[in-house]
Design a protein around this nucleic acid. Structure first.
Length: 487
DNA sequence: TGAAATGTTGGGGCG
DNA sequence: ACGCCCCAACATTTC
């Protein structure tokens, strides 16, 4: 085996949302060619809706740092470039180094699909072969259509069809070596991208919770399979416990593939001589919701902006900057809501049950447009995903596919009692209320401590629940009949 | 992957 | 002993 740098022209692997070496078809195919391989990440400096939010930029920094280290161990080098049009940057780089080909993992937002298509065409004109791969999904959107050839609007039907097809193929191993070209092109320094917050450093505690990168992702998957998987179906709804997989940011950045996750789960069950049970099925369904969201994104270019149900264009929202800010800052006076919003700010993540409660509260009790919540989550979640985030907000609003019925309004007091029965979750994130116990913690305004000011500066409820519920029902009822009336 | 309003039932207190 | 009423507890309907 020769280890001397090859003088053959290189293949560029353009990494975007698949920052890993294992089960990376674009990379594996590049190594397979026998040419040197140049992995490249291009920071998108364009000003558009999919620019990563603050929390995602924190994650991206550490994920890229980890990827660069992992590549170096295999003889490879990650090249960093930036520009307002990443596709153009790749084209220029390909010409600069005389690349024979460019590989990338496919994306599914309509704008991104168009960009990739144009890049492929221009590269072809320049005599460079561009190849795209599925690096992110179990089932690509065009493979799961109903009998009339249209995308599913109902999750259970979508999922049934996915499962009736062939199983996802086995994940690819990481290449033992990623042979670098003899001459490396110039690269930006990651630190110069200023992806990390400085003043104030709101991400200072993120490292206590997260280990971005492929190694951290694999470790988290193992921890989940050995731990929270058992009992997942019930425990995943308990924000006071560690009952979820916490894989979402790793999947978001492609540090682990859904295919690796799928197969690791089945391998785990087989090793334990255990048939897939309700816990495993529930977890697989969560992976499937991600697939469903990507299908919705692919077929609905405006998923993050416009309601899928057109009558929602007439919804009587009551935009209110003060209400939105109180929600963002975790100062609504409803403990489970405020705990969630503060967990989000402190860790870049929020428990899924609490995401539903906080989103329902913003949309239904405060009548703020769901897009405002979508944007806040986009900026603050380390797992902010173009498909999941948009689809989930529309799901809660009732304007999306397979959405909740308009009358399903979470009562934050009852949800708190049911899913945080001892108040441990609230106590952790809303320390002002730590002195209150059990049931009282979810209705602090009724407590003597509250009346006497012992709970510090915790605010009174921003809105009265019963009145807000009636107002929401009236607002949603005003849409009835709209659909038929649409031209 | 709701909650509230309304309806039904049955045990027990009490005259 | 009997019927009336109250009201949990549970079920059903409605939003």
């Amino acid at each position: 085996m020769t280890r001397s740098p090859s003088s053959k022209p290189p293949v560029i692997v353009w990494l975007r949302q698949d920052l890993r070496l294992g089960d990376q078809p674009a990379l594996a195919a590049a190594v397979e060619t026998g040419h040197p391989v140049l992995p490249v990440y291009v920071l998108d400096e364009g000003d558009h809706a999919l620019s990563p939010g603050g929390a995602s930029r924190w994650w991206l920094h550490h994920s890229l740092a980890a990827l660069a280290r992992d590549l170096e161990r295999r003889g490879g080098t990650l090249v960093l470039r930036r520009g307002r049009e990443p596709g153009r940057v790749i084209e220029a780089l390909a010409r600069e180094i005389g690349a024979v080909g460019v590989h990338w993992g496919r994306r599914y937002d309509a704008g991104e699909v168009a960009v990739d298509k144009a890049v492929k065409a221009r590269l072809a004109d320049a005599g460079i072969t561009a190849k795209s791969f599925n690096t992110s999904l179990l089932f690509e959107p065009w493979t799961t259509l109903n009998k009339s050839g249209r995308p599913y609007q109902v999750f259970t039907q979508f999922w049934r069809t996915c499962r009736s097809g062939s199983e996802p193929s086995a994940p690819l191993p990481a290449p033992a070596r990623v042979p670098a070209p003899a001459e490396l092109p110039a690269s930006d320094r990651l630190a110069d991208w200023a992806l990390l917050p400085t003043r104030p450093d709101w991400a200072k505690d993120f490292h206590q919770v997260w280990q971005p990168g492929e190694v951290g992702a694999a470790a988290q998957l193992d921890r989940f399979l050995d731990g929270a998987l058992r009992g997942y179906r019930a425990e995943r709804d308990r924000p006071d416990r560690d009952g979820t997989s916490r894989l979402s940011p790793h999947l978001r950045f492609g540090e682990i593939s859904p295919r690796q996750t799928w197969h690791a789960l089945h391998h785990h069950l087989a090793t334990a001589r255990q048939p897939p049970d309700a816990d495993a099925e529930t977890f697989l369904a969560e992976l499937a919701w991600r697939e469903f969201s990507y299908s919705l994104l692919y077929y609905n270019a405006e998923l993050a902006r416009a309601p899928l149900k057109p009558q929602f264009a007439h919804f009587p929202w009551r935009p209110d900057e003060a209400a939105l800010r109180a929600w963002q800052q975790g100062r609504t006076g409803y403990p489970i809501v405020d705990a969630g919003m503060r967990q989000l700010w402190a860790t870049g993540w929020m428990h899924n049950r609490v995401r539903m409660i906080t989103a329902s509260f913003l949309i239904k009790h405060l009548l703020q447009p769901w897009q405002a919540g979508e944007r806040w989550f986009w900026d603050t979640l380390v797992d902010a995903d173009p498909a999941n985030n948009a689809a989930s907000w529309q799901w809660v609003a009732g304007s999306g596919a397979d959405a909740v019925p308009y009358f399903r309004i979470f009562n934050p007091v009852l949800q708190g009692r049911k899913f945080d029965p001892n108040g441990a979750y609230v106590r952790r994130w809303v320390p002002e209320l730590a002195a209150l116990d059990g049931d009282a913690i979810h209705e602090p305004w009724k407590s003597d401590h509250f009346q006497s000011g012992k709970v510090g500066a915790y605010p009174p409820p921003i809105i009265e629940l019963a009145a807000a519920r009636d107002r929401a029902l009236a607002a949603f009822a005003s849409l009835n009949g709209r659909e038929a009336a649409e031209p």
